[in-house]
Design a protein around this nucleic acid. Sequence first.
DNA 1: TTTAAATGACACTTTAATGTAGCACTTAAG
DNA 2: CTTAAGTGCTACATTAAAGTGTCATTTAAA
Lengths: 162, 162
Amino acid sequence: MLAADPGASIASIAAEAGVDRRTVYRRFDSREALLAAIYEARLTAIEDAIEDARLREAPVAVALHRYVENVIALNRTWPVDLADMLADDSVRVRRDAAVREVDAFLARATDEGLLRAGLPEGWASALLPQVVHLISRQQPELSPGQAADVVVDTLLHGLGTR
Amino acid sequence: MLAADPGASIASIAAEAGVDRRTVYRRFDSREALLAAIYEARLTAIEDAIEDARLREAPVAVALHRYVENVIALNRTWPVDLADMLADDSVRVRRDAAVREVDAFLARATDEGLLRAGLPEGWASALLPQVVHLISRQQPELSPGQAADVVVDTLLHGLGTR
DNA sequence: TTTAAATGACACTTTAATGTAGCACTTAAG
DNA sequence: CTTAAGTGCTACATTAAAGTGTCATTTAAA
């Protein structure tokens, strides 16, 4: 619900969850604390997704698909944008570390010939999460595995006739 | 500036523009009116972009590149998200018409063999604007023409080695 | 230079959301 | 059954932003 409107009021969040506004304040000290808990959960899920995909060692094609599948699943569980929380130092540090890990993987994928060289700086790095985010929301009927098939195929080969 | 935070206060908007908060209220009756004017400008630019690209008649490869280039340019001039304004009926109607026009073009591109058939429903339609939006912001040093080259190549052939 | 329009600055009311307090009610554990 | 924990509800204070009014000052056109 915070996906649609990150600035949603505590009242509307509580209403959507079917509980009283006061109950939210009993579980979380403040709005900030509530959001921090959500972003914490997402961030941990991201770290798990990276580790599970073994971005450093697994064959790049395998690692890419598995990472994409994991992130699609966590995007659907925690559909919030970490960009809203970069004010928090701890969040930013962990998020930056995750980004570096994926960037290093993409560099390895380029070295090993999965990705083309000579693309604009940061293009693959920016495109990957956007496409994953998009399919997570726009294709809810696809399972994470099916959606990952589409994402990997789209990223590697595009939408054109082959 | 509204791109980063659509919920920015009038005070912060005015400050960033170097004018007094009161001056904003002299030009626009309300915050709603200010946003409506911005979205109106973007919407008109979108309609112009579609018409200029001649999505219905021009060769699909030519029309695609030109449309993408036009939208990248307008994304940089009016970097706001129309999704925030879908409450306004007139905006929604015009936006839907533009979306239908692009969808029809993508169908033609598929018929004529530029795009692959058998993709998930709505995938190309959703992916195109996202990729265009992304490059508009993430690759500011590329000219609209260069950026369109990258977008079209990425969309048609992907990032993989050929 | 004079004048009219636009702007900046200050003060105010209103509104919406955050966060807090107290009390009645439900529910599950003993 | 009794009790304790959690929840719903109403009310209240606080804060931030929207929106309005007024007046002095600046700016540009005559």
